[in-house]
Write a protein that binds this DNA or RNA. Structure first.
Lengths: 363, 363
DNA sequence: GCAGGCATGGGATACGGTTTCGGAACCCGG
DNA sequence: CCGGGTTCCGAAACCGTATCCCATGCCTGC
């Protein structure tokens, strides 16, 4: 019955269809479309007409099999609804599109199994790079897992990029795009200390999360520099979410009252903290000051607007993509020992309205 | 010099490498890996060992060329940082991953040119479906553009899905996943009216945006039902962003004061409005009530927490993916006239703390 | 007027898999 | 010991495109 190509075929048109219909060879159609070979004006016109008539587009899979093909970058993220991550993704995607690259996206949901499955899936897709976003849990096994990913991707001609995570140890073929996490926390804590605050509630985040560790360490350094003790009871770990901010402050007001400021690990945590203070009848910043971290849009939309640390998320995304694009241009051979494999971007404090000196100092 | 396959090859391993190294045929390796054909235990073991040794993964492009391949869904979005869109994307991506599908993502930035380019790019990729997210600008040309996309994708064996946009007119091969936008606005406005508000500032959004049009219409219907005039001067159009909310309220306080409530087109607009009222020394909700629309996380994080309309964004994403997955299972032939091509999900008001009766009624 | 060069188009092959088809080995009962 | 039916596996034909290599036609220079 059905020959190889029936009339009125439901499938998509192939380059052969175009060729036969235009009365030329397959090679010519390919050349007209890719435009990297001299073709007569007459041929081009004839082919293009048929291409328009058939609404033909080349098959990307076939093209990439045959050697050509658009590079693709994969973005792997914990939770796509996080504001910070969205901005990194925007940076990556924007820079990718600018060069005609494509971007795939996958969410891991903090599950190592899914992370592995996704990395393999991306390897199958032959992506130019896999970008892993967000802080990592610093278990022993972590470094090994990442190193394995890095080598595995490298062997397949791809490349691993870590964004917002600490770099891998040893000679591992991976690129890290980082920001001065600890420095930002140092500056932010200093801001509170220089305003006169001495008892500060610190909500760094999950204790095993590298991001939280850095922010806590930066704060500790600032306290040391000011010769102020950071009392362990005033450090409360927990998730990076609104609920934790709320709950932690509510408990602290009951268990360890007397703090005059809250140093939150995240703007969202700060929002929760602010709400809890208000629910307890305390005013921000008159009674208690609050600072956040990340400078997501929310921080400017709270009342009062939040003093926080700006992290160049979108920029990090762009830089990450540029790094892999550059690598790929210099060729895969000149790659060892390049100094471009750990990029650090700066952070800075954004002063808004959520900090005042403690009331004891204001008489 | 270099034969087809040099030792210590830098490229990725092929199925032929695995086959020769395991001493079996290429076909056998394929069968072991895809698992859709009976294979002896001995063969399976031998092949799998080599697969692990070589860290081999199949080439997705080759596989999809040959007929197999993982289905892919493309998500096209205006602005990846919008909270509502992020939730839809989460729904789509989650449901896709659940079935082993892949998700591509692209951002259009409200540019029709880029939208066209992306749709074509996705057609090249042979995606199972293209999901277009977000309200559309209702220019004349719009229906034609979308119809063209729909037919073009359909002819290529793909499918267009519109999420959060009104359905296309006529017999167009597209699926629409929508929510009861106008109904939500009706309920929200009724909530304000039944609280006693009569002079309400309405900030529906951009006048040409279908979403904004529906929200305004719903509000108008509620006003009519209550026999209250909605004065044109109190309707102010503008972008769906914080700045517009702020600016519109600031101007309204000067030009058309006396309103006792703000009906914002979006939670983010409501946040801006709230800030502007507060900057003018007005209290929310004691002096002026505010309601939003969308129920994004922000709405629960504002002070006071925002009364708003819940839109099932994530659910819409899941439903959208389910719709295309179902279509593809019943086969491409039974597709005309299916009633599954316009799905509408419900909305409902979420009452929080941003509404009180107007002060005139409270003595 | 003819040889050589250049500009173009076509045929064949490669890319890395999946799948169909057919053959070999093995088991069974007669 | 042999025929017929199962099981498994291998050879080969694609999937749709890019590109290498060669053939052709025309122009140019002598």
């Amino acid at each position: 019955m059905s020959q190889r190509k029936a009339a009125g075929d439901a499938g998509r048109a192939t380059i052969r269809d175009v060729a036969s219909r235009a009365g030329v060879s397959v090679a010519s159609v390919s050349r007209v479309l890719s435009g990297n070979y001299p073709v007569s004006e007459d041929l081009r016109r004839r082919v293009m007409k048929v291409v328009r008539d058939l609404d033909y587009v080349t098959n990307a899979h076939a093209r990439s099999l045959a050697g050509g093909g658009t590079p693709t970058v994969a973005i792997l993220i914990n939770n796509i609804t996080g504001a910070a991550f969205a901005h990194v993704a925007k940076g990556v995607e924007g820079a990718a599109t600018l060069r005609g690259w494509l971007s795939l996206v996958g969410t891991t949901g903090d599950d190592p199994e899914r992370e592995l499955a996704l990395v393999n899936l991306m390897r199958q897709q032959g992506v130019a790079a896999v970008v892993l976003l967000g802080g990592a849990y610093d278990y022993d096994e972590y470094q090994l897992r990442m190193a394995r990913f890095a080598r595995s991707l490298d062997a397949a001609g791809s490349h691993l990029v870590l964004v917002g995570r600490p770099p891998l140890e040893g000679d591992v073929p991976a690129t890290t795009v980082d920001y001065d996490n600890e420095g930002g926390a140092y500056a932010m804590a200093s801001h509170l200390l220089s305003a006169g605050h001495r008892r500060v509630l610190v909500l760094p985040g999950h204790a095993e999360l590298t991001t939280a560790q850095g922010r806590l360490k930066g704060a500790q350094r600032a306290f040391e520099a000011y010769g102020v003790e950071l009392h362990p009871d005033l450090v409360r770990h927990g998730q990076y979410d609104y609920e934790h901010g709320y709950a932690a402050v509510a408990r602290a007001l009951y268990e360890t009252p007397g703090f005059t400021a809250v140093l939150a690990g995240t703007d969202v945590v700060a929002a929760g903290a602010m709400q809890a203070l208000r629910a307890a009848g305390l005013r921000v910043p008159e009674d208690v000051s609050i600072v956040g971290y990340d400078d997501i849009p929310l921080s400017a939309q709270l009342t009062p607007q939040l003093t926080t640390v700006h992290v160049p998320y979108e920029e990090m995304g762009r830089v990450a993509l540029r790094a892999v694009a550059d690598r790929r241009e210099v060729g895969p051979d000149r790659r060892r020992g390049a100094d471009g494999d750990h990029l650090v971007l700066g952070t800075h404090v954004v002063v808004r309205n959520s900090v005042k000196p403690p009331s004891t100092l204001r008489g």
